[in-house]
Nucleic acid binder design. Structure first.
Lengths: 331, 331
DNA sequence: TTGTAAGCGTTATCAT
DNA sequence: ATGATAACGCTTACAA
């Protein structure tokens, strides 16, 4: 590997000058800069980023911590973030918390240890508060939170319009004529779900419908728990569910099919996330869509631009068969 | 940040001893090792990996290069690889080639520059040969290829049982009684698709059916091209298609629905990849399943164990409605 | 078993 | 505008 010292020797100058010429900004004669750049090109020089990082005390790596890489939502966020960061000369070190606080802490320490330029984080469900985060990152590593955020932490935040979205989704169910609308609300440890629940509640109250805690099912939001919760929802006389996730909505549909309950005639379902399967399944599932790729790009840009505000990414309601009594199909 | 020098001072010994005590193996008195470890703990020491990497000329980062992070298949591979690597103390730097050779080359150079411990790679479609890969990585960075591999490159390879799988899928269509079975074969620049085509061909020949090039559609395998190819397949008198991807199979189904052609009665479809939507759509789609998570784990383990052989991950045929005339439903 | 010293490749500070 | 020098924190011959 060719170093700046090699170039310096070849040119009869010193490494410092080469370094300056190559790093752009500082005062170097135009002539020498050109000569250095030419020589560097010729010799196939590439800056050793590890050495540069050590000396500078910061790297051009951005860490991304997500609960699970292979969840459709998160992999899309990562895809969006990586593209934007890469365009700006950054690279992405990726960590999974697997929803545990310990792994999240370990990942944060790892990233600090690599002196990353920044951290993009969506916290583990197990992390009910975010105090560990600034504690580990300190003042010098900028933090961008996305999707699951701690509002009280400083720094940029990118969130979905959870309140608005859930309000729209629930209002839609009301308009369709469903009378007793429950919700699979998700983890109350996460702000995103708390807001979805608020949106649900306000939609009911705006329509002068009662908010009834006995049909608010707060649990993990996987297929199996959706199935289980739907049993209780039926017992409680529900005829529709707004679900804070698509997989728990799927579980609910599993049960309804099993019981021979017609969708959407007898029971309405709206999920959340607009996973790709929702449009393709039968009956197709109405879902409140997030925009993960854009969220990833927004998180990356917030880091790149040094923003510290909160950005809200709109959520769109995709009305499909599972909630559409009037049969106005929408792909 | 506390350094080994700090620990050394606190203990009245030298940094080298501290380094040795902390790096495990070398000869250090058990007593001092214990003292050092205790002190390190006390002072909250964490080894600066950047410095260590610079000195050693290699890092504990493994680079993963995939065409696109957010494709379901690849994100699952990454998820599996990350878990296994993380357990062994490695971290993952992630790069997207976006299917272009240039980005792939850039990523390889970046990873070399970070002196990564190894590279896990699934090459871009645009890369029709792999000569650039060892050229950039050299002898010292181990390469593990997965899914899309160049057989002539040295090093470990993890591939799906594409030949076997396509053979099974096509044989299944034959058994179901379809008479003229075409294929959406995918990119012939990639070995995986070449093998799927071979499996398709051999299944036909084993059943004494002709292999007819006019019903082999080789193209990109997205929804739209599947739709287009299916038009031609119908014109050519096909009554079934083995599709080398799920999305092109979906495009084919789009067309069949549009034309009112019954699935599976009049036309059979088998896709490849077993994307999650295949089980949920209507009619549910038969698909040749890969095991991306396991593939990622296998790739990681191949790196960790220094293997250089080729491992074949079996593919399973999931028979669902789209090819199941006998209606023996299988979830 | 431990200490000494050099060096990984770069950047930053001070001179010149 | 350029050069000399030190330093980032660690590892590793070599010496003791």
């Amino acid at each position: 590997m060719v170093t700046i010292t090699d170039i310096a020797q070849a040119l009869g100058i010193t490494p410092s000058t080469v370094s300056r010429a190559l790093s752009g900004s500082t005062r170097v004669k135009e002539e020498t800069r050109r000569a250095v750049q030419k020589k560097a090109q010729e010799m196939g020089y590439e800056r050793n980023v590890v050495a540069a990082n050590l000396r500078k005390g910061r790297s051009n790596i951005v860490g991304i911590i997500v609960p699970r890489i292979h969840r459709e939502f998160f992999s899309n966020v990562i895809g969006g973030a990586e593209s934007a960061l890469n365009d700006a000369g950054y690279h992405v070190l990726i960590c999974q918390s697997l929803e545990t606080r310990d792994a999240e802490i370990k990942a944060l320490k790892t990233l600090r240890n690599y002196s990353v330029a920044g951290v993009l984080l969506s916290h583990a469900i197990e992390s009910t508060d975010g105090s560990h985060i600034p504690e580990i990152l300190g003042r010098s590593i900028p933090l961008v939170q996305f999707d699951r955020v701690f509002p009280d932490l400083p720094g940029a935040k990118i969130v979905g319009a959870n309140y608005d979205g859930a309000f729209k989704a629930t209002s839609h169910l009301i308009q369709q004529g469903y009378k007793r609308i429950g919700t699979l609300a998700g983890y109350m440890s996460s702000q995103a779900y708390v807001e979805r629940l608020s949106g649900y509640r306000m939609a009911l109250e705006s329509a002068n419908l009662p908010y009834d805690k006995s049909i608010v099912f707060s649990d993990t939001i996987v297929r199996e728990t959706g199935y289980q919760a739907c049993i209780k929802a039926l017992e409680a006389g529900c005829d529709a569910l707004y679900c804070a996730g698509d997989f728990c909505a799927l579980g609910a549909i599993d049960l309804l099919k099993e019981k021979g309950i017609r969708i959407p005639e007898d029971f309405g379902i709206v999920g959340t996330a607009n996973e790709s399967f929702t449009a393709l399944m039968f009956p197709s599932m109405s879902s409140l869509g997030q925009h993960p790729f854009e969220m990833g790009q927004a998180a990356a840009k917030a880091f790149l631009e040094g923003r510290t505000d909160t950005q809200v990414i709109p959520m769109e309601l995709h009305i499909r068969q599972s909630s559409n009594k009037n049969n106005t199909w929408q792909k």
